[in-house]
Design a protein around this nucleic acid. Structure first.
Lengths: 189, 189, 189, 189
DNA sequence: AATGAATGAGGATTCATTCAT
DNA sequence: AATGAATGAATCCTCATTCAT
């Protein structure tokens, strides 16, 4: 990759996300991406060697931005507060970036995904695991299998935000609080 | 569709599910389906008018079989027992039929889906909603928004079974019990 | 060819003619022929070895029936009367059997035609040539090149009947008489 | 259609005409057209959206060029001279462009033809009709039905030029004169 | 004899990628 | 760097023909 124009690069990524949201990754073609990004098809190949690379690169970018950014500010807070903040931020992020979520999900099931991309299990999961463990040590979180607790948090937030996005319902304070209460009751000791 | 040979029809469906599991719906081609099902390409078109029809028909079939079958036996039980049974059955079903789940998920985001198929929101959801409402009336389930509770159950079971299938971990009694405990704590009043 | 059922054979030919009239020889398929003739596809291959044979056989049949039957009754009449009768009969035949005409024309330009069929220049043309020559000997027909006179008769009758069939106009006495007058003025000495 | 290269466009049209002349419109395939035009198959679809569009576009082009160009120069001449000129030009055109004629005829009976193309009854017919009417007003042409006279001119010229092309006979002065004499005798008052 | 399900070669069309401008 | 016309491999689909019943 030898990108020159950061704006153009972002336009390509945006177009890819938009189109995947509209017609699914099945309907995603290079010419549609170019047209949507308002550049020539040839230009796509200045920025990416192939469709596969484009799509993997985008996945990597989304993963690295993702929910990671929020972590550092929270590390000093008590466990429950950290979880609450994460829950709020994650819901916000997932509702606001629903198209990106859709892209990532479909990408994971496509033949485009490279071994490297598949391995991109992100720091976020590790962080969440450690947080739960810390809570268990403090006896405020159930002594259940980590996988069982993580699945709840990730599966629930995904489903809830996806449902909100689908029905175009706004993410209100009340929803955040109610759903977090549900979460906390689920995992608390 | 003018199926003559029920076996051949099922072979087509099986091949479609298998292939979608392997390479995603993006990599699904009619010739691969035919080869996997061990029939001629032309034969596919004896059973289905087009790839779109094939894939919609399969979705419809999976939906109608699906988790619906279990409902009727349970209706007499108390709410919590019903939920427990459903939870167990659902996990079992989803782990054992992970490929079908994958197919349905990808299908929903593909351009193949017809309006009719999209409308196939199943009886199961309605049943689950009513069960939760009944629990709320009996004051044993939280007075939270129905969507918030449903998202938990569906999102959690999906994530958990998907994780189990991915890691090829067996669905043990313990996992079922632990995860149901988590569920129940989450929604109980 | 080992036909057993003359009715079925005719149904096949009729279907072929009808379909060619409707969608052209380009759209002609064996399964449509079978369906229109109300027989099974397999049965077609009991009567004909291939599509090519079917279509050549039909051409041969139409050619041999054709306008030939009328000749024998006329041979004793004077030249102009013979021509008049032929003109009338030909117009009638071509208007009433427009679909057959269409089939033959399209067949002649298709890759189905065999060498043998192409050679089926029929007795009718020879007869018409001889008739014109006789007229020239009797000094009642122009001493022009035979091809020039024949082209007039065949091209004109074809165009006129085709136009009548297309507009579904009936072939009236007046049209026959007026058009024959035109013909006769064209070729008379 | 977004043609960039006029030469390539013409090569496609030429190939289509040639191939239709050789194997009929039944045997016409996109890959043969591409090969004959010495371009890639994909390139065909840069110029035309489909086979249907290609073939309709060609028909339209041939119609609009066609015999129309000759009209304007003649309008000042007396009726009989106009007819003579038209007859000569038409024969020349049809003999020299026999392949185009064949294409148009087969196209008209194919399922490819669009409503719009079918409606392309050309100015030429109207012009010819008006010319005949003018001759009738001047009492030099028979008071016969217009359709009857038009059929003669069009059917005859078609048949004659087609026969000449088939036998590869040259279109001599003598043939033109003799055939026009026949024509004139046919329609003159 | 009659049937039509099964087949795969072949045709139309798409789309990732190249390359001359 | 940017472009988009050109390309052909790969895809969907059709249809003449076969063959077991």
């Amino acid at each position: 990759m030898k990108p020159k124009d950061e704006k153009k690069l972002q336009a390509i990524f945006d177009a890819t996300i938009t189109l995947t949201g509209q017609e699914g990754i099945v309907g995603l073609t290079m010419s549609k991406i170019a047209k949507t990004a308002k550049i020539g098809i040839g230009t796509l190949y200045v920025y990416f060697e192939s469709k596969e690379e484009l799509v993997n690169e985008l996945y990597r970018q989304l993963k690295s931005k993702g929910t990671l950014s929020m972590i550092d500010d929270l590390k000093q807070l008590p466990v429950k507060l950290q979880l609450m903040e994460i829950w709020k931020n994650t819901l916000h992020y997932q509702v606001e970036n629903h198209a990106q979520m859709l892209f990532m999900e479909q990408f994971l099931n496509s033949p485009f995904i490279s071994e490297e991309s598949r391995g991109l299990s992100h720091r976020f999961m590790e962080y969440l695991g450690e947080l739960l463990k810390k809570g268990q040590e403090q006896m405020i979180i159930k002594q259940a299998d980590e996988g069982i607790l993580m699945s709840l948090l990730t599966g629930y937030s995904r489903q809830l935000s996806s449902q909100l996005a689908a029905t175009k319902a706004p993410l209100t304070e009340q929803i955040i609080n109610e759903s977090f209460a549900v979460c906390w009751d689920a995992i608390k000791s």
